[in-house]
Write a protein that binds this DNA or RNA. Structure first.
Length: 314
DNA sequence: AATAGTCGCAACCGCCGCAGC
DNA sequence: TGCTGCGGCGGTTGCGACTAT
C-alpha cells in the first residue's frame, strides 16, 4: 500500500479507536479490516460477478455480502467509474469536448449533471478532464477558468475551432472516399476486379494521416476570417492554433494523438453526415442543439474578442 | 543514465439531502 | 421531530507514468 494510503488507514484506525462506545469493539474490528487504495483484479472480479448475479443494491450491504473488505462507497465508486460495462474509456472526442465546454458554461461544476449528457462518461472523468486540460489552458491564457473572459474564449474561439477541425477532417475523409470510390469503380470496370478491404483501408488512412497541425491551421484560418474579421489575423490565429495543437492542449482538434485518431475520424464522419443532412449537429439536448446550430450558421457575432485582446492575454 | 518536474487519473474525503424509523 | 444510515456529489490528494534537463 502506498505511503499516503497507509497514512489514511492509520488515521482512520485512530479515529475508530477514539470512538469507543457500545459498538466500538465491533466497529473497530470492521474498520481495521477495511481495505483502501487501488483495487486488485480479484476485488474487481468479485464485485463484477456479484453485481452480475444480484444486481446493484444497497452498497454497504452489497460490499459485505460480496465479501469485499471495502466500504459501500468505495464499491459504488469503483463500479460506476471503472467496472460498469458501458463505461467509455479513452480520450474525449471533439463532440464530447464541445459538449463539456458548453454545458460547463451553463451549469458550472455540476459534473454529474454534465455527465448525464455524455453517455458512458463518468462525472469523475469529466471533472478530471476539466481540471487537467481546461484549467491548464485557462492558466496559460492568464485568466480564471470560470471567468467570462475564458468562457468567451471557449465559446467563440475554441469551440468553433474544434468543430472546424473535425469538419475539415470530414471533408478530407469525404474527398478521399470519393476519390477512392471513383478509382475503385474505374478499376473494377477496367479489370473486372472487386473492392478489397485493404484498398478501402488505404483511402481511410490517407485522410487520417493528414497532418493534424495543418488541419488546425486550416480550421483556425477559416474562423479567423469568418468570426474575427481582422486583416491578416488569420495567419496569427492559425499560428497560435498550430502551436497549441503541437502542445497537445486540445487533442481531438488538431493535436497529434494517435490513440484518438479512430475516435476523431468517427466524429468527423458523424459531423460530415450531419453537414450533409443540413449542417446541424443534433445533441441530446434540444436547446444545446440550437446553440450549436446558431454558431455553425455564423449568427453569433456579438461579444467576440478582437485578436488584439487575445494576443494581450496570450 | 539519473534526476527533477509535470501530468493524468483513480481513489478518498467531507458535506449534503433524503428516507426510514 | 430528531436521529441514523446511506447514496450522491464536488473537491482534493497522491501515485505512477511520462517528459525535460
Amino acid at each position: 500500500m502506498a505511503a499516503s494510503q497507509r497514512s489514511r488507514c492509520s488515521a482512520a484506525a485512530v479515529a475508530v479507536e477514539l470512538d469507543e462506545d457500545d459498538h466500538g469493539q465491533h466497529q473497530q474490528q470492521e474498520a481495521e479490516e477495511l481495505r483502501r487504495g487501488p483495487w486488485t483484479v480479484d476485488e474487481d472480479l468479485t464485485l463484477v460477478n456479484y453485481i452480475a448475479d444480484h444486481g446493484e443494491g444497497r452498497w454497504n450491504s452489497l460490499a459485505r455480502a460480496a465479501g469485499l473488505k471495502r466500504t459501500g462507497k468505495s464499491c459504488r465508486l469503483r463500479w460506476l467509474n471503472y467496472l460498469r460495462p458501458d463505461v467509455k474509456r479513452g480520450n474525449f472526442t471533439a463532440d464530447e469536448q464541445l459538449l463539456i465546454l458548453d454545458l460547463h458554461t451553463r451549469w458550472g461544476n455540476r459534473w454529474s449533471k454534465i455527465a448525464q449528457h455524455l453517455p458512458g462518461r463518468t462525472d469523475n472523468e469529466i471533472k478530471n478532464y476539466w481540471r487537467t486540460r481546461v484549467q491548464k489552458h485557462a492558466k496559460q491564457l492568464n485568466c480564471d477558468a470560470n471567468s467570462k473572459r475564458f468562457k468567451d474564449a471557449m465559446r467563440y474561439l475554441w469551440m468553433p475551432h474544434l468543430v472546424d477541425a473535425d469538419a475539415h477532417r470530414a471533408r478530407l475523409l469525404h474527398a478521399a472516399a470519393a476519390t477512392h470510390h471513383h478509382a475503385a469503380l474505374s478499376s473494377a470496370a477496367g479489370a473486372g476486379g472487386v473492392l478489397t478491404s485493404s484498398s478501402s483501408a488505404d483511402s481511410f488512412a490517407t485522410a487520417e494521416s493528414y497532418d493534424d497541425g495543418a488541419a488546425g491551421l486550416y480550421a483556425a484560418g477559416v474562423h479567423a476570417g469568418e468570426m474575427l474579421v481582422v486583416d491578416g489575423a488569420g495567419d496569427c490565429w492559425a499560428a497560435a492554433a498550430a502551436q497549441e495543437a503541437s502542445q497537445g492542449m486540445w487533442p481531438s482538434a488538431a493535436a497529434d494523438h494517435h490513440q484518438q485518431q479512430h475516435q476523431s475520424a468517427a466524429a468527423a464522419r458523424h459531423m460530415h453526415q450531419l453537414a450533409a443532412a443540413g449542417g446541424h449537429h443534433q445533441f441530446q439536448d434540444a436547446e444545446l442543439s440550437g446553440w450549436v446550430q446558431g454558431f455553425s450558421e455564423g449568427i453569433i457575432t456579438e461579444n467576440f474578442w478582437a485578436l488584439e485582446d487575445i494576443w494581450k492575454i496570450q
